[in-house]
């Protein structure tokens, strides 16, 4: 069963990646596009026959955008799955502890003060995201949250509400840049290039590695904190490591792509419904399915109403919502 799921998910990811680099407003022949991609593989010398402008469309626009969508989708899905595990809460998503609100405030402040094109926007979003989780974590711990995930979630809710209020205030005070702020908040991959990929990769690698090595311990936590303790595990230690890793990855994703919702909560659930409740299966498959989902969503976002782009956050929810309901209906198993 799960082997079939792995094979199908992998095939879907490959097909989605291929479609993402083949489809676009410029009509290019599939053969030439693949040759162009191959020509960038080290030690492969091949001529795609594309002129420099076409070649740039493939290698400077489509490919990095697809790679970034895959990286962001993988990171958000994995972070969401990991949060659902450490907090044993089906409603957990990567933005649970205030990442979205913190990044939103950071980006808004940067956009109204230096403009939406500035390289400072992702930096401010990243700092805001990390700061929000750090605040939630220290508040939650001070209130006894070290021993219970619930206090931490509540601290996250409080921090998020506070930062969202601050963000709304800043936005209202600078009504002329509302459009840019709004477009950032809905998430976009339209500006993606290799520099964004380079920015995101280290965070994705660290986050994915740390979370993946904790997947057995997430299974241990799934029997509850008391029993985990009786098995010799310190739940608060696992939680801290996973929260830090998920936060770093999410902050990186948010910095390069804005607030893309729904991926982080739905993908792990769909995977769980397919392969069961063990994080040893859920987490690696969330990486594959999350990448595929966001690559497809981005493809729809840029081609459905082409040449206009629909914000990708609209697509993830518009397509993902009904899809999730169908999966939920056809599955007889519970969500957690």
């Amino acid at each position: 069963m799960s082997r079939i799921v792995v094979a199908v998910s992998g095939a879907v990811l490959l097909a989605a990646a291929a479609a993402a680099i083949l489809i676009g407003p410029a009509a290019l022949s599939p053969g030439a596009v693949f040759k162009e991609v191959l020509s960038h593989v080290p030690f492969v010398h091949i001529d795609s026959g594309l002129d420099p402008r076409q070649s740039a469309i493939v290698w400077e626009l489509r490919v990095p955008r697809m790679v970034l969508a895959a990286l962001v989708g993988a990171t958000l899905s994995l972070a969401g799955g990991a949060y659902q595990g450490v907090f044993r809460n089906p409603l957990a998503d990567p933005y649970l502890l205030g990442v979205a609100a913190g990044a939103g405030l950071g980006a808004t402040v940067a956009i109204v003060s230096v403009g939406s094109g500035s390289a400072l926007v992702p930096v401010a979003a990243f700092v805001g995201a990390i700061g929000a989780v750090a605040a939630a974590y220290s508040l939650g711990s001070a209130a006894g949250g070290q021993r219970s995930g619930a206090t931490l979630i509540l601290a996250g809710v409080a921090v998020a509400a506070f930062l969202t209020a601050a963000q709304t205030f800043v936005q209202q005070q600078n009504a002329d840049s509302i459009r840019e702020v709004y477009s950032w908040i809905l998430g976009r991959l339209g500006t993606a290039g290799w520099s964004e990929v380079a920015l995101m990769t280290p965070y994705a690698v660290v986050s994915v590695t740390v979370i993946m090595v904790h997947r057995r311990l997430l299974d241990v936590l799934s029997v509850g904190e008391e029993e985990a303790r009786a098995l010799g595990v310190r739940p608060e230690r696992v939680r801290a490591a996973v929260v830090v890793a998920a936060t770093v990855g999410t902050a990186g994703a948010v910095a390069v792509s804005g607030l893309i919702g729904f991926v982080g909560i739905v993908v792990p659930h769909v995977v769980r419904l397919m392969v069961g409740a063990s994080y040893r299966a859920i987490l690696p498959l969330s990486i594959v399915c999350g990448s595929a989902f966001l690559v497809i969503a981005d493809l729809i976002a840029r081609s459905a109403l082409g040449p206009a782009e629909i914000p990708i956050g609209v697509i993830t929810a518009f397509v993902g919502g009904p899809f999730f309901l169908v999966v939920l209906r056809t599955s007889r198993r519970g969500v957690m």
């Binding site: 299974d219 799934s222 029997v223 509850g224 008391e226 029993e227 303790r229 009786a230 098995l231 010799g232 595990v233 310190r234 769980r272 069961g276 409740a277 063990s278 040893r280 198993r333 519970g334 957690m336």
Partner: peptide
């Protein structure tokens, strides 16, 4: 803690059994 858990096993009154988890896991 791990050394203690190698000596003492506790079966809780209402153990948490995640529905979707396979018995062998």
């Amino acid at each position: 803690r791990r050394a203690v858990a190698r000596r003492i096993a506790l079966v809780a009154q209402r153990p948490v059994l995640p529905d979707g988890m396979v018995v062998s896991d």
